[in-house]
Amino acid sequence: MGNLLYNYEEAVALILFSIGFMTLLFHKNLLRKLIGMNIMDSGVYLFLASMGYIYGRRAPIVENGDVSAEHYVNPVPASLVLTGIVVSVSVTAVMLSLAVRLYERYHTLNLDEIYAAARTRREHR
């Protein structure tokens, strides 16, 4: 367990990921599932960002021409996070619009009730 003391930031990130995972699985309300999914994504991005950090180094913006690699943090995880955040924004937008459509149709956001309503309404097509 020695390493865990050093990797505390990555441990917190992955605990955040599993909290989001559990919320996604256990809650029946669609909005709570969405919040769980967002926690999951932010857990992964915290993990990514913390993977690139190196003690005593600065952000990868070149200052007055100093391009030696010892002064800067690893820029690749930062670029992955920037790309990933846009993905979770778009997915959240689509899920929220689905929630609006479902609420208009079934007047509830609890997925169990929606299944029951869909079953009693006997819609298929």
Binding site: M1, Y6, N7, A11, L14, I15, F21
Partner: peptide, 16 residues
């Protein structure tokens, strides 16, 4: 999943 993730972090290269 949580248990495996904690174990993974324990095995990962050191932070920083």
């Amino acid at each position: 999943l949580t248990a495996t993730l904690i174990l993974t972090v324990e095995g990962m290269p050191r932070y920083g």
